[in-house]
Nucleic acid binder design. Sequence first.
DNA 1: ACCGATTCGCGAATCGGTTCGACCGACAAT
DNA 2: ATTGTCGGTCGAACCGATTCGCGAATCGGT
Lengths: 342, 342
Amino acid sequence: MDIGEIARRAGVSRSTVSYALSGKRAVSESTRRRIEKVIAEAGYRPNAAARALKEGRTRTLGLVIPPASQRLTDMQLDFVASVVEAAAQIDLDVLLSPSGGDHDRSFERLVTGRRVDGVIVMEIRLEDARVERLRQTALPFVGIGRTADPDSMSWIDVDYGNLITRCVDHLADLGHTHIALINRSEELVASGYGPGHRALAGFLEAVERRNLTGVDVCCADDRVAGEARFDELRARHPEVTAIATINEAALPGIERALARHGMTVPRDFSITGVVAQHWAEYFRPPLTAADVPAHEIGARAVELLQEQIATPGTPPRHILLAPPIALRSSTGPAPRMTRHDG
Amino acid sequence: MDIGEIARRAGVSRSTVSYALSGKRAVSESTRRRIEKVIAEAGYRPNAAARALKEGRTRTLGLVIPPASQRLTDMQLDFVASVVEAAAQIDLDVLLSPSGGDHDRSFERLVTGRRVDGVIVMEIRLEDARVERLRQTALPFVGIGRTADPDSMSWIDVDYGNLITRCVDHLADLGHTHIALINRSEELVASGYGPGHRALAGFLEAVERRNLTGVDVCCADDRVAGEARFDELRARHPEVTAIATINEAALPGIERALARHGMTVPRDFSITGVVAQHWAEYFRPPLTAADVPAHEIGARAVELLQEQIATPGTPPRHILLAPPIALRSSTGPAPRMTRHDG
DNA sequence: ACCGATTCGCGAATCGGTTCGACCGACAAT
DNA sequence: ATTGTCGGTCGAACCGATTCGCGAATCGGT
């Protein structure tokens, strides 16, 4: 069922059907109705490939996600969901590309096969080969996260450094002197994952400025690791009375370990950080934390991309989110008995 | 950069370039090398739309996921990840369509715009409008899950009915007489979600046959609901000593509620069901449960679909998985003190 | 030196849309 | 009556690949 068949049945030419459909030229009321009737009866819909070929755009955008081998965190899932939803709102489809490494086939297909009008890249590294590749091809793209050289591309990011700094300040204000940072996984940080680096930098800055003792530990993005890392932390650094974290996937494990150690939050231990809202709210007691607005991030990323696509050459735009730290119930004064100083 | 440009630079015709690329006709060693060199230098890759138009296939498959508004469960996420990964293995891209309702724009685009060669539909209902729609269009598709009339389509499903029956039998063998089923959300079951219905049927069958008292409750797919439903269960049916569940998202909440009620598993309470492996293993104590092989399901779904695409007209195939119930540590003899009978 | 057979390459048609230029009739202005 | 404008329609070119039919060059065999 192609446009020629519709034209024949309606007794007009193919171009008239096209114009009736797009409205780019006037078509008389009567023929338009006739054409619409035929289309409805035949259940016709234009072939996406043919249209993409002629128009030079696919009405599709690419979403580069971390490889499926490593489980996606809840927050990453939220990004994906919100991007897909926001794209659907403006009638764009989303093509998924699970690729982290340098030369990924699906990534290359996406980028050089002109399968998409633009790309959203998740989990950006400070030095990111994919960003370089996209820059070469002049394909519009936006990052969820930013590279070490952020000015030349559009991105949206959460200000992990600043937020973790403020978390540490908050804990210091409460009298905590020995504070731990629970970071994302070691591999991720080692490979130059921005939030990990910036959170660490913010942590170290605050620890130094407030004259605290800080210990930073990496932790894989899952509950089991969270539990194990917390046990290790207790064993090696019993003087630590509070943690700040950007690793929400580790939270349930931490919660369990706390219970196992017979510790009550916030009486015996304080915990805060930067995590997705529903994790903060699910924690017992609810977490004092900066809520990452994952849903908003996905939606704004699509906006940014759509802008780049619609008007190429637009200077890149940046959105740096620093959501407020929601004061809930997981932080309190440092316990006296575990203090090592006066 | 199109095939004509490559042809010009290599001093051959466009068809020769095409044949050199596809290997469908012989091309002399020397010209082939020359063409390859030019292609490598220019970084050329065929335009996907043009190829799709001519070949009549898009090398893309559609994945219909539940609408983003309702959070995806971990298992659903595993399906998505494994489908994407399996598709990438055989150089297929995946287009996402978040659609549950009847007339979803993105679903319609997918189906009638010939954007994909085939479709995988998640979260199939007993009566499913999307399945009907796909049948009309003669587009190859496979379901993760099956409708009430399953013979006419390809699907892969988990035998929730049978597995829940066996879970109940296992609990009955241990002396439990009052058993609860924690089902998926009320809306989901009400809308004819297969696993919910079949699990309930299997539950009722076993309860009846073993002469037990059964109570079945629906529970939204999240931790908070799990905790609340368990509290209600304790309040209304204190005689219940064991639960079987297919709602893995509720497990952390149930675990927390158990702890809050001061109950130890399996001494005071037994719990089993059909859930993703990593949930079963994370539960404390580890869950005796049928492990849903989410990864395998995604991969086999892609296989099934690929088969349908490659040889249209192939009779539909069905895969019904009944993974073994892995005996771990969450089920034990019914506690004496809470028994109401002799 | 001539004859198939084989190898290699080219030109043109095709897929299904969009869009540009041209045409035609009706109607207003001069 | 002539010219100009405009709404409505059509034919043809085009997007970038694949593929079929055809012909030129080469080669071995006689």
